[in-house]
Write a protein that binds this DNA or RNA. Structure first.
Lengths: 161, 161
DNA sequence: CTCAATCTTGACAAAAAAGTAATGATTTGC
DNA sequence: GCAAATCATTACTTTTTTGTCAAGATTGAG
């Protein structure tokens, strides 16, 4: 259960765009340099993000990428969904076991855990926008404070019964 | 952000052991058959789980695996931590970018998100025990209901400011 | 119109994760 | 003590994920 390279770098590239002033844009070489990844890699990520409609690209001299929407209107759950390659929906379809009937289907106790975990993560991500990720670590950490607090409360609730 | 094959199958193997009566045990071929994976694969997973102290193995005829502790005392966060291969702690150490100074270190807005997400997932997992995963899907789903409810409430709280 | 800067796209290569195979060690039953 | 059943361990193969390369397409400047 961890964030993939594509998720992390894709998100980082978007955050770079989110830091720009209204009239600015960033080229692939600039994005690559700022995140310490290759230009080719940045190109692939931006291509994905462009296809998904998060950024707009202009070619030619003075071209580059800008966000398609205000950073405050881009929620992390949407972004991660695109970068995460596959959906949780087809989790059980992509089963590789040897049985004819997938053990993942039908009555089993694991599936709710996988689906439930996914929902919890989505819920948390949907509360964060790109705009909230601009700035220093301490600032962003404060945003998460609220979430953690409630999580802790939730834990105590559950222990009571 | 998804569960890995190792995490899922490892967890499944443990759940199989959790369904046993006190005096029973399962051999590798039995576990493999029940989960629809190869015996070799089951062997590797059980080896990991044994090293981590979740199960006890006995060799020879009539050998097999049993849980080291009652299923109600094994929390999913411990299990996932072992099966997940790497820690969140060294996330930034394992950086593969081309810059001398890792962009992941120091002041950045992404790190709290990664760490925070991890904490949220851990918190949710720590509330679930193996014992709760025994039984049919509907029953297990009910366990998650509480968590989801609180998550939703949390979302609303955040929207208010 | 032509060139340089830039994004686009698909094929390819490298690395990581997952899964398999083979050999060795331990225990039980006879 | 020997053979069968079982787990333990390491090396290897396959698959998936990441990352790179190279050729193409579009735009703006002069």
């Amino acid at each position: 259960m961890k964030i993939s390279a594509q998720e992390e770098y894709g998100l980082r590239c978007l955050v770079q765009l989110a830091t720009l002033e209204a009239s600015e844009s960033l080229t692939l070489p600039q994005i690559a340099e700022r995140e310490g990844i290759s230009q080719a890699n940045a190109g692939k990520l931006m291509w994905l993000l462009n296809k998904a409609g998060f950024v707009q690209a202009t070619r030619g001299t003075k071209g580059g990428y800008v966000l398609s929407r205000p950073a405050s209107e881009i929620h992390l759950n949407e972004v991660i969904k695109i970068l995460d390659a596959d959906e949780i929906g087809n989790h059980c379809e992509s089963y590789t076991g040897v049985l004819d009937s997938c053990v993942h289907k039908g009555d089993c106790g694991i599936r709710p855990v996988i689906v439930g975990l996914h929902e919890i993560v989505q819920e948390a991500l949907s509360q964060i926008t790109l705009a909230q990720l601009v700035g220093d670590e301490a600032k962003v950490d404060a945003t998460f404070h609220q979430i953690k607090k409630f999580e802790r409360k939730l834990g105590q609730e559950n222990l009571r019964h």
